[in-house]
Amino acid sequence: MRIKDALRQSGLSSLDAEVLVAALLQKERSWVLAQTDTDLTNEQSSLFQACCTRRRKHEPLAYILRQKEFYGRRFSVNPHVLIPRPATEGLIDAACAFLTEGEQGLREVDTHIAVLVHTWRNESPDFLVDVGTGSGCIAITLALETGRSCTATDTSREALGIARSNAQLHGVAERITFVQGSLLAPLTHVTAPFFLVSNPPYIPDGEKLMQDVAEYEPHQALFGGHDGMGVLLPLFLEAKQHPFCVGCALECRSGQAQKLMQIL
């Protein structure tokens, strides 16, 4: 079967089909588009058809390919972890802007999504903390972009396994401590100043999501109670009350950020 025949018969959007072929052949998508008369082997055709079947059932491409690009780097993902999103790259930008320039306040990073950056203490953090690390993309990217050490927590043992693998992949495993636990509970005994950076679950329960998201991504990483603040607010309050948390950068809905600002 030629590439152009496989693409035409895939039953997928052109983009999805081209991305799958490119990944299967370990080529760039531009190569695929320029080489559509190239023959696929029987094994490649079978693998492609299997991937198409999964995608037609709305399984996200990132889970089929077992990877997702974030901040210019590839991260391993599976259904135990949330797929990294472009809005969270804005969280990285906001955290870096604070760490380098002291920039604080509210930053819009996507439609109705914002990052709230605020400090309670005028201290320089010794390390960074990523709560709900998932794939580890936040902690790993911050370690690479800032050169700082991080502590990354998650309630899921499976997610922490993926995060550790990604840290090894990107050469920062020695600078990130991974701990299982909820919110800031793993940092109870910390006696050095730290800065919290987190993308907690903030979607209100019952909100209708795309089928790709609703049926495949981990709900505990998406939904945050009736108003979406069931994790966000306790995390914010724990950070505010922790004697060594100097401040935070939190991704959330713009309206939720406004509510947090009222209790600063």
Rank of each mutant, 00 (worst) to 15 (best):
L116V: 04
A50N: 00
L91Y: 08
N122I: 06
V109C: 12
S45Y: 09
L12C: 05
L40C: 11
I83E: 01
A62G: 04
V21L: 15
H80C: 03
I83D: 01
L116A: 08
G134R: 13
T36L: 04
G136T: 10
T36R: 14
H80M: 01
L99T: 02
T36E: 03
A34N: 09
S45W: 09
S46Y: 03
A62W: 07
S30V: 10
D126A: 14
C150M: 11
E103D: 05
A143S: 12
D130G: 08
T151Y: 07
A34K: 15
E18C: 11
V81Y: 02
E103G: 04
I138Y: 03
E28T: 06
W31K: 15
A23R: 14
A62L: 02
A139P: 07
Q49N: 01
T111H: 15
A87S: 11
F70S: 04
H58K: 13
E59R: 02
T53E: 01
G136N: 13
C51Q: 10
L65C: 06
A23V: 09
A23N: 12
I64A: 05
E28L: 08
V131M: 07
A143W: 04
V81I: 07
G132V: 04
E89R: 15
H58L: 02
G102V: 09
L99C: 06
V21G: 04
L91F: 06
